[in-house]
Computed example of a mutant assay.
Amino acid sequence: MSTTTPLLSAEALKVTFPGRRGAAPARAVDSVDLDIRPGEIVALVGESGCGKTTLARSLLGLVPPTSGQVTFGGKPLDYASRALKSYRKRVQLVLQDPSGSLNPRHTVYDAVAEGLRIHGYAGDEREAVAGALSRAGLRPPERFFLRYPHELSGGQRQRVVIAGALVLEPELIVADEPVASLDASVRGEILALLLRLRDELGLSALVVTHDLGLAWNIADRVAVMYLGRIVETGKVEEILTAPQHPYTQALLSVLPESGAEPVILTGEPPDPSRVPSGCRFHARCQVLASGEAERAGVAEACRTKDLPVLAGGGQTQVACHWAVAAAKARA
């Protein structure tokens, strides 16, 4: 998979928003490289406010980057309206809350057919809608055509949202917290559906989530984001069985199946308009607070020395002075 040309890439991507009342601009996405290859599922993981949703919206063309670029199929994304319309047929968004993303006055048929109508689909609309519903696991599809969202369960509504994305036969979907609002029993069904779509259709996916457990169940690769930048990335098995970054270790420690002592991070993530010097995680880092970084001789670097931007490919990488020092010591 690592030798395959990326389907979607972010290169040195930055998204800043104007500060309030003359404050410095907020660096929501701050120099991110990220590749997604054909048939690959990448999980973008981090706390609320870390910039992962802004990054996803920028990859969709909804938020133009302040600098850097997004490429799709090797070509830079064109932000002209006609080009974006064509692009969004190939890259579709699946939202977190199916109740909020479905119009309560539209039937299931109209909800799924909406994308076809926007893009001027010339084929058999009924056949396309039925096919999308069927692929999303709503069978027989005709039984759902005239139902309204309030007549469906939460899992069925999420399947309708997924069918609305699939009906345009995209190459990639961006799923923002796709199972966050669902019961535990239904979450597994939706995750299994996404995996089946990847296997049957060759669909790629970027799954945005705060839940490392979800990443473990669905992703080929994980990118951990903190304060606008990816701080650790690699194959999901490597990152989740041997996390190197203290932030990843803290996120993983709260999963019941981890067996580790939960790490409680102090404070809130810093304001993205005031990114700290050195490692952007150092003010909350349990390794620095415990004196481990001092003993490794990197405490001053943690506080003052900036870390390099991680490459967007599939290799395992970490942006952490202490983890790099520990790896050198082991070698």
Rank of each mutant, 00 (worst) to 15 (best):
V29H: 03
V29G: 04
D30L: 09
S31W: 04
S31P: 04
V32F: 12
V32N: 14
D33Y: 13
D33V: 08
L34R: 02
I36C: 13
R37C: 10
P38K: 03
A43M: 11
L44E: 09
V45A: 03
E47N: 11
E47I: 09
E47F: 12
S48F: 11
G49I: 04
G49K: 06
C50G: 06
G51E: 09
G51I: 15
G51H: 08
K52M: 10
T53D: 08
T54W: 14
L55A: 06
A56T: 03
A56Q: 07
R57W: 12
S58M: 04
S58I: 14
S58T: 15
S58R: 06
S58P: 05
L60G: 11
L62K: 09
L62Y: 02
V63F: 05
P64D: 11
Q69W: 09
F72R: 07
G73M: 04
P76E: 13
L77H: 15
L77I: 07
D78P: 06
D78T: 08
S81G: 08
S81N: 10
S81D: 15
R82D: 15
R82F: 00
R82A: 15
A83M: 05
L84M: 14
K85P: 01
K85N: 10
S86P: 00
Y87Q: 10
Y87T: 03
R88D: 05
K89V: 01
K89H: 10
R90P: 02
V91R: 14
Q92Y: 12
L93R: 01
L93A: 11
V94N: 04
V94L: 05
Q96N: 01
D97V: 00
P98N: 05
G100Q: 01
G100N: 00
S101G: 08
L102P: 08
P104G: 12
R105K: 12
R105Q: 07
Y109Q: 03
Y109V: 01
D110Q: 10
V112H: 09
V112E: 08
E114G: 00
G115E: 11
L116P: 02
R117T: 15
R117S: 15
R117D: 14
I118R: 10
G120Q: 03
G120K: 01
G120A: 05
Y121S: 01
Y121A: 04
A122E: 15
A122W: 15
G123V: 00
D124L: 09
E125T: 15
E125R: 06
E127P: 00
A128F: 02
V129N: 11
G131I: 00
G131P: 02
A132F: 06
L133T: 08
R135A: 15
L138D: 00
R139L: 07
P140F: 00
P141S: 06
R143K: 14
F145A: 14
F145N: 01
R147N: 08
H150E: 03
H150K: 02
E151T: 02
E151H: 08
E151G: 03
S153P: 10
G154V: 01
G155D: 04
G155C: 09
V160Q: 06
V160E: 08
G164R: 10
L166F: 10
V167Y: 13
E169P: 01
L172W: 07
L172T: 07
I173V: 15
V174C: 12
